[in-house]
């Protein structure tokens, strides 16, 4: 590169008298490097910015008309996700509960709490509570909850520790690179729905996809299926589940038209 520049310089010098000081050579070289670094840096900063919570809102709790706490309702009360998100297994949309679902319990509990006034108001008048979405995909993306649930992707794989969130926030960026991270290797997060039941752990009686305390198998804590098969690594369990759950090939699930239809 420098040789080329020197050639250009000599060529230019052959046309004109020397008008630049000798230091101009260094300045010219330094400014070319600086320009490359500046443009590269700006591009890098731009890419990082659009991946950051400033743009994606990942990890940022949103204010809501009622400060609903998943921490209280899931960890504290022990409600299953499906008590409120009833359509998650059967439709693309997990479902936001109608106000009536809140009133199933709050008709008798915290009946005078000021914080719940908007809920009571909504129930009385029939006007919708207007929640702020925390996870929102662009309209050009097709997403279906039911297929992910039924193949064995746990709720908290994508939504994070919802059971520990006082106010709900999006856990993941929900950007395409994040989706593809799993679609390129679908076995790495699959869970069995049913495991061998242990009378000491009631979570083993439940569907593991909705189990917020599920742990991937390790040598110390293997995942044992109801038929007695034991897995000590996610690689082995994932490969097994991909087969028995008939997960489509990586080629299929990374095809453009799978999600952009």
């Amino acid at each position: 590169m420098w040789g080329c520049m020197r050639a250009v310089g000599q060529w230019m010098a052959s046309y004109m008298a020397q008008i630049f000081h000798r230091s101009a050579n260094t300045i010219a070289k330094a400014s070319i490097i600086a320009a490359i670094l500046l443009i590269g840096g700006l591009l890098w900063a731009g890419l990082e910015l659009q991946r950051s919570p400033y743009y994606t809102y990942a990890g940022v709790a949103r204010s809501q008309p009622v400060p609903f706490s998943h921490l209280h309702h899931v960890s504290g009360v022990g409600l299953d996700c499906r008590y409120c998100h009833t359509s998650v297994e059967t439709s693309g949309f997990a479902g936001i509960p109608p106000t009536k679902t809140c009133m199933n319990c709050h008709s008798q509990i915290w009946t005078n709490a000021p914080m719940l006034a908007p809920v009571r108001e909504s129930y009385r008048t029939g006007k919708s509570l207007i929640w702020t979405r925390v996870d929102n995909l662009p309209d050009f993306v097709y997403f279906d909850h039911s297929i992910h649930i039924n193949k064995g992707i746990g709720c908290n794989t994508c939504h994070g520790p919802v059971d520990k969130m006082p106010l709900t926030y999006a856990y993941a960026s929900m950007q395409m690179e994040w989706c593809l991270n799993c679609h390129r290797d679908p076995g790495k997060y699959l869970r069995p729905h049913r495991v061998k039941e242990d009378p000491k752990d009631p979570h083993t009686m439940d569907d593991q996809v909705f189990n917020m305390t599920y742990q991937q198998p390790t040598a110390e804590h293997p995942v044992v299926l109801p038929d007695g098969q034991s897995f000590t690594s996610q690689d082995a369990l994932g490969a097994y589940l991909v087969k028995v759950k008939h997960v489509r090939s990586v080629r299929d699930i990374t095809s453009c038209s799978t999600c952009h239809r």
Binding site: S69, L71, H72, S75, G76, V77, G78, L79, W110, A113, M115, L116, K164, P166, K200, D201, P202, H203
Partner: peptide, 12 residues
């Protein structure tokens, strides 16, 4: 140990 009896519960 049934679900819902974990210690980090908070009141509204």
């Amino acid at each position: 140990n049934l679900p819902g009896s974990e210690p980090h519960d908070i009141t509204p």
